[in-house]
Simulated assay, not measured.
Amino acid sequence: MNAPAKLGVYALCLAGAFGLAAGAGRIVGPIGEDEAAPAAAHAEEESGMDGHGDTAAEGEAGGHAEESGGEHLPGGLMVSDRGYTFALTADTLPAGPDRPVSFTIEGPDGPVTEYDVEHEQELHLIAVRRDLTGYQHVHPVRAADGTWSAPLDLTSGDWKLFADFSTGGEALTLGTDLSVPGDYQPAALPAPSTTAEVDGYTVTLDGHLDAGVESKLTLSVSRDGVPVTDLDPYLGAYGHLVALRDGDLAYLHVHPEGEPGDGVTPPGPDVSFFATAASAADYRLFFDFEHDGVVRTAEFTVTAEEAHS
């Protein structure tokens, strides 16, 4: 066979081979396609996503985010909550006595100018250094434009201010930071104790804090060993109690048992409160009481433990 004839036969063979391969490809299909589809379907079935894995995951994450919102945090840990913001005029002030502090509570429509009266006041301002010293409970004066002002005795260090108020039936405790420049050595937290001395008065603490459940705390006031049975009414009760968690200074919700004039609550020596500790931790208690026209503060360190059923 001559050369041209050989080339022609070779070309025909190649064409036939390619045709068979193409036909086989159409019959069999791309390798692995039929195996991959069942595998993918099986994976979806196993995971329970039914082809909507991203949507399901996003929905679950969104629900979790709502559950872990600020509404479940203890008071005082946020500067803004439910549309209200604690706004200091200046967040740095020099050390010294009677330093003027001013601020507004910014609401959805600007500075708030209408408040509910709680414990005989529109707003309670609590100031404490971050090492839980220097505690002050004052009642600032509000101007017509909503600006609050009050003098504070400030020492060098980092301070935490709490605004405790209610407006439109919405009770809030907002917290913000105030810096006071200068030499600062944080004080160690005093050891837990059930007795405090202040200006010749002895205050004893009975009861303990349990994390996550309401606990009853009773403080008993005496002077020179004699129970004080004529405490003055103070802020609608015979005492006021603030509890702050060591570390982040979470502000506990505390309310008194009974009130002056209810016919069942005596003016001392015992003053009882109900408090719920947010977690097992050390807390500093500040008990304000008034006697002979003077307000004094007894301070305690207590340790909240996990509640046992």
Rank of each mutant, 00 (worst) to 15 (best):
T85I: 10
I31H: 12
G53H: 13
G8W: 10
A278H: 09
G83Q: 07
P181L: 05
T297Q: 09
T85L: 14
A61D: 14
L178H: 07
E33T: 05
L189D: 03
S80D: 06
L209K: 02
G107S: 14
Q136N: 06
L205A: 06
G168K: 05
L73H: 15
P38F: 07
L231M: 13
G175E: 00
G261W: 13
K160H: 07
A187H: 11
V198Q: 02
A187C: 08
Y10M: 04
F165S: 01
P74K: 01
T297I: 07
T204A: 08
Y283T: 00
F273C: 06
H255E: 12
P108N: 05
E71C: 15
A17W: 05
D292E: 12
G175Y: 02
D116S: 12
Y10I: 04
E118N: 05
E305L: 14
S156H: 01
S179H: 06
Y234Q: 03
V9C: 08
P108F: 04
G146D: 03
H124G: 00
P227T: 06
P140V: 03
V302A: 10
G110D: 04
S215D: 03
H42Y: 08
G75A: 09
D98Q: 14
E45F: 14
V264Y: 06
A21L: 15
D230Q: 14
R82T: 03
L73C: 04
A163K: 05
I27S: 10
S166L: 05
G29Y: 13
H253W: 00
A11W: 12
A17M: 09
G51M: 08
V128A: 04
T167E: 09
A196H: 03
D54N: 04
V203F: 03
H253G: 01
D116L: 11
E106W: 07
H308I: 13
D248K: 09
A22S: 14
S149L: 05
Y238W: 11
P100H: 11
T176S: 10
G25S: 09
E118D: 10
V228F: 01
F273N: 00
L178F: 12
T147F: 04
E106M: 14
L285G: 02
H208M: 09
A95R: 04
P100W: 14
E67H: 11
H253F: 09
P151I: 08
E35D: 09
P256D: 01
G23A: 09
P260A: 06
H42E: 14
T89H: 07
D91N: 12
L231Q: 03
E60M: 13
S309K: 12
A250M: 05
P111T: 12
T297G: 02
T194N: 15
V242R: 00
T133Q: 11
G69Q: 05
V213T: 13
R99I: 14
A61E: 13
R130W: 00
Q185S: 08
A15D: 02
A304H: 01
P100A: 06
H240I: 03
L178M: 01
L73Y: 15
E67Y: 15
L252T: 01
S215T: 12
R296L: 08
A127D: 05
T85A: 10
D158L: 15
E58P: 00
A144M: 05
A250E: 07
L20K: 06
P260K: 13
S272Q: 11
A298P: 04
T113H: 04
V302D: 00
A277H: 07
